[in-house]
Each structure stands twice: as C-alpha cells, then as structure tokens.
Write a protein that binds this DNA or RNA. Structure first.
Lengths: 99, 99
DNA sequence: ATCTTTGTTCGTAAATTTACGAATTAAATG
DNA sequence: CATTTAATTCGTAAATTTACGAACAAAGAT
C-alpha cells in the first residue's frame, strides 16, 4: 500500500483501524468488548451463527490490528480491549470526524 | 454477509462505513472533503501517486457507501460530502466509541 | 492413559479488493 | 467535424478476505 508521502501516518493508522472494524462480526465483537471490557470466544460463538474457525479468524484480525488482546486462561482464552490502541483509534476518529 | 439477528442494523451500517474508510486513499479523500467540502477528481489525482482509474474506483466505493456524491460540472466532476450520511457515520462512530 | 473442553491452525474454495493501462464517453473548443 | 479535457468504464491480473469443516493442541477431569 505504497501511497507516497502525501498520505499522513495518522491517515494510514486510522485506515488500518477502520479496516479492522469493517465487518459486522468484528464490529459486534468490539462493541461487546467496549461494553464489558472482556469476554471469551465461546460467549461470542454462542451468539453468532458462524463457524468457530471463522470467528477465530476475525478475532485474529482484531488482534493484528491491535484493537484486542488475548490472555490464556485455560481451557479458555480471555479477550480484552487493547486500551492503548483503542484510545488511539477513538482519538483518530474523533479528530477525523470533527475537522 | 448473513449474520442472523444478533448483529444490529446500526452495527451493520457502522461496519459498512468503516469498510469504506478502510483504505489510506479513501481516508485521505474523506479528510480532504471534510475540510473543504468539495473537490475534483483531478485535485486528488495530482497529489496521489496512483492511476486515475484506481482513484476512480476508490471514489466509486465511497459513493456506493453513501459517503460522497458527485455532481457533473463539465468537463469535470465535483465531489462533495454526502452530508446526511456523513452525519450518520459521525453519530454511529461517536456512539460506538463512547459506550 | 484417555476423554473432554475450548480454541486455534490447516487446507481449500469462492468472492472481493486493489491496481494498472487501454479504450471510451461527453461536452466544450478550435 | 476533429481535438482537447476530465474522468469513467473495461479487461485483466495478483492479492486479500471470508467462510467452512477437519485436524490439532493443551490442560484438566475421569
């Protein structure tokens, strides 16, 4: 995604977060986490009519984008917001929408 | 993208906007438009090192997502924010980030 | 030692996205 | 009527995304 020097670092970061949020399942997960801060993959899997492996893939994308983090708590994995990046995303979008 | 009744209409709409914003070029365009309200395809083409046809494609996606609208002003096309949907997006993201 | 539980990883297929250059359109201009 | 201008649409290729089920992993329970 080489777009020269015209596009700012902030725009790139905002686009990255937006992309991660650009799917209904991931939007749902993030909204859940922003409400209750933590959850298990199974909690989501029980609600959504998608394969577990598909959900895992979505969670991985959110993790790769830095929006969530997983903590092993066997036999489950506890997913939480990555507060630092969540706050960054919040700020970037706030600025973006209030220009 | 059939995801049952668990995912709300709002989440679907927010995901749709997020997806449209999920590319640096489109983020750049939207930020430009939110600053100056209108612009021509050529203005952007002069700045960004991408093919005109590629830019056209990105503009089409923003248009399909309802974030911008084009007005013919020959020989050019004037692109403007779609204020109504822009405001909806703003609201959805505001709610999303402030839960 | 085997079974259960909770998720991930693998393999794969279909669809979508991204990108480019060439061809096209549509009106204004010479 | 041919040219010019500004941008779109077409054709196409490569990469990424989305989705599923099967196979696997890792620790606790039986």
């Amino acid at each position: 995604m080489e777009v020269g020097t015209v596009i700012t670092e902030q725009q790139q970061r905002a686009a990255r977060y937006a992309k991660a949020l650009g799917h209904p399942v991931r939007m749902y997960v993030m909204e859940l986490l922003s409400k209750q801060s933590c959850c298990y993959s199974g909690d989501i899997s029980d609600e959504l009519p998608i394969a577990k492996s598909t959900l895992s893939q979505h969670l991985k994308e959110l993790k790769d984008a830095g929006l969530i983090q997983g903590e092993i708590e066997l036999p489950r994995i506890k997913y939480c917001l990555n507060r630092e990046n969540w706050n960054e995303a919040k700020l970037l979008f706030k600025q973006f929408f209030s220009v």
